[in-house]
Design a protein around this nucleic acid. Structure first.
Lengths: 315, 315
DNA sequence: CTGTTAGCGCCTTCAC
DNA sequence: GTGAAGGCGCTAACAG
């Protein structure tokens, strides 16, 4: 790889002039400008970004630590983030981490000057981060740190109101253990019931269920008396797990029971889409990038609301 | 962020001694060693990797350009790669690129000293790369470059032999346009037929099909005379697209027709697994990392063979 | 054992 | 307009 010295020698000017031409080109004699450009082209010279980084104290690298348990869900985040980052000449440095220890290790390894800022995505364990340049995205809440939270209460409320509008007035709710945000979701759920004049039935609600399967079985055991016709689950993965189970018990979906995912649905050919709340990865990425690039004001704790997605129900 | 100067000052030694303690610690008086360590701890000093990179001319960053059209498939690659890379103190720099132009742009932006080496994954368009430090993974073939290819002929052969062993002797084959590797797959298909004494019927084979749907309809139109009972498709995505279509035509899967994917199957809860050839992402990542770290011998053109995955067929 | 010196490649004053 | 010098943070070679 050729350096600025090679170029300056070949062009017969000083390093400073080369640098000037390549950055602003302001106040350089046309003759030397051309000479530099020619040399650059001949040597196929590219300024070394590492040397630039050393000087500017910033690399343009953004560390992204994916702590999601559902690896499939990371794709959406990564794709949107990368698209937005690369548009701003920023690079995405990827790490996966499944435990708090792994996250902290990754954080450590990325905080040695390599990354300007770091994102932690989808952690379902508490994290105390002091660093100003770390953003928590869809993580368990924690204070005095920049974060982007999804509005789970709002999601649950939207879901229930939608279901009620569809004539589904017995809405069951299953939250698997450690999915986080259980209280927020319950809050939204209760709000919606109230507003729609629906009674709250605690037998329809399973927070912190050990497994959605067990919770579902309990629900079905009491089906004669309970007779629920809608089921709110945490995310797409839960939904895809629950649907075949319902079918196994001879319940049609969505005929008898409408399954609703509170976080995303699968968009794969051949797999039935279900109604869901989906968070716009694009909006999220845009918000993050604008903070990264401007940084004038604190991000603070930004709350993102999801969109109601209804599959084409004609069939 | 504190620098080596701060540490040396606080510890009352020179920069060189600090550096010695932090790297090898060989031949340093215990007293000064402790002084340095204490200062390091107090200042929470971490050597700046960018400065180290400038000196060593290597950053430990590996660029990964995902050119896959099926974004869901990238997750497998990324997860395996990141795991292996981080174990060797290497960082994964992620880019997505959907066209040749985008790939070349990405390549350009990553080749300015930021990345030691670059991987391009899943490109289905021809790519002429000269650089020695670029590896093509599962890309359309091209010569004089390091690459890891999947053995598609072997996959097709395995698939047919397996299907034949299951009593499926009328094996249809659909390859969508631009999926690449059509000739290799056809080769393996024909080999297997020969070895299993099965006739080759050109009406069962659709290479370069505009859409798998159309090909499938043609197949079904002639179902009375053709009567195929197995269907080879390019990948999991194709499979999931094709299965509901078959069902819509009243063909049970796998009862009437066994669908076989030549590249991976979906492992999601609630979604039926189908027989498939799967390539071990772990093996691939291991191979790549060993080349990256050792680099003693050329990688050349390495061919990876896939594993036959059979779903639990009890139900 | 340890300090001094000289760069890695680049950009930015500051003189000329 | 342009060149020389200094320094970003670090390590390696060379003296002591």
């Amino acid at each position: 790889m050729s350096t600025i010295n090679d170029v300056s020698r070949l062009a017969g000017v000083s390093k400073a002039t080369v640098s000037r031409v390549l950055s602003g080109s302001r106040g350089v004699k046309e003759a030397s400008r051309l000479a530099v450009l020619k040399a650059v082209d001949e040597l196929n010279y590219r300024p070394n970004v590492i040397a630039q980084s050393l000087l500017s104290q910033s690399t343009g690298c953004i560390g992204v630590i994916c702590a999601q348990d559902n690896v499939n869900q990371t794709t959406g985040y990564l794709y949107a983030l990368e698209k937005h980052l690369s548009q701003h000449q920023k690079h995405l440095l990827l790490r996966f981490a499944n435990t708090k220890t792994e996250v902290m290790n990754a954080l450590d390894e990325l905080s040695c000057g390599l990354c300007d800022d770091i994102l932690i995505i989808g952690a379902r364990f508490p994290l105390q981060i002091e660093q100003e340049n770390v953003i928590l995205v869809d993580c368990m809440e924690s204070d005095n740190v920049n974060s982007i939270q999804f509005d789970h209460a709002f999601a649950a409320e939207t879901a229930c109101t939608f279901l009620a509008s569809q004539g589904r007035r017995q809405i069951a709710l299953i939250q698997p253990q450690g999915s986080g945000f259980a209280d927020q979701i319950l809050l939204g759920y209760k709000h919606a019931l109230e507003k729609n004049f629906l009674p709250f039935n605690r037998n329809l609600v399973f927070m912190e269920a050990t497994s959605s399967s067990v919770a579902l079985q309990e629900l079905l055991h009491n089906a004669s008396t309970l007779n629920f016709n809608a089921l709110l689950v945490a995310d797409e993965q839960e939904a895809q797990r629950v649907i075949p189970q319902l079918q196994a018990f001879n319940k049609s979906v969505p005929g008898d029971i409408m399954v609703f995912s509170l976080a995303g649905s699968l968009h794969l050919p051949g797999i039935p889409t279900i109604p869901a709340i989906e968070y716009s990865m694009d909006a999220m990425a845009a918000r993050i990038v604008s903070w990264l690039t401007e940084k004038t004001q604190m991000l603070g704790s930004y709350v993102l609301r999801g969109d109601l997605i209804i599959p084409d129900m004609r069939r």
